[in-house]
C-alpha cells in the first residue's frame, strides 16, 4: 500500500514586515486540505527560503509579503532556485501587490498571485492542479 504522494508546501515570509495573519491562515487552510505545510516564520531572506525548500524537498513554495519589497526579493528567490536546479518547484505569492506588478511577478515564474480577499480553497485547488499537471 504505497501512500498517496503527499503535497509538501513551504510557506515563508520574506522581507521585514511582521504581518503573518495571511501566511498563517493559508498555512492552516492548506493543512486542513490535507497538505504538509512547513512554516519558516518571519523575516526570511531569499537564501534561507531556498535552502529550506531544498532540504524539505517541497513541491511548492508560497511567499507572503505585505511590505511592498516583493520586486526586490522575488527575483532573488527565483535566481537562487535556478542555481540549485530547482526551478521545478511551484511558486505562488500572497499579499498586497499593485496591479501593474502582477504580470511582472507571473513573468518571474510565480504561477499564482493571491491578493487580499483570496479564498484559501482556491489556493489549495490551485496547488493541487498545478502539481497534478506536473505529474
Amino acid at each position: 500500500m504505497t501512500q498517496q504522494p503527499k503535497i509538501r508546501v513551504l510557506i515563508a515570509k520574506p522581507g521585514l514586515d511582521g504581518h503573518d495573519r495571511g501566511a498563517k491562515v493559508v498555512a492552516r487552510a492548506l493543512r486542513d486540505s490535507g497538505m504538509e505545510v512547513i512554516y519558516t516564520g518571519l523575516r526570511q531572506t531569499p537564501e534561507m527560503i531556498v535552502e529550506a525548500a531544498l532540504q524539505e524537498d517541497v513541491d511548492a513554495i508560497g511567499l507572503s509579503i505585505l511590505s511592498n519589497a516583493h520586486m526586490a526579493l522575488f527575483p532573488r528567490v527565483v535566481e537562487l532556485l535556478g542555481a540549485e536546479g530547482r526551478r521545478d518547484i511551484l511558486l505562488f505569492a500572497g499579499g498586497i501587490f499593485p496591479d501593474e506588478d502582477v504580470p511582472e511577478i507571473k513573468k518571474l515564474g510565480f504561477r499564482g498571485v493571491f491578493g487580499p480577499g483570496s479564498d484559501t480553497r482556491e489556493i489549495a485547488d490551485f496547488i493541487r492542479a498545478e502539481i497534478a499537471a506536473r505529474g
Partner: peptide
Amino acid sequence: LPTLYGYDTDAPETLGEFGK
C-alpha cells in the same frame, strides 16, 4: 521597516524595503 527594526538604510537585511 528598516527603521522599525533598527537598521540603517545601508544594512544588507533591508533589501527592497527602503521607504516602502
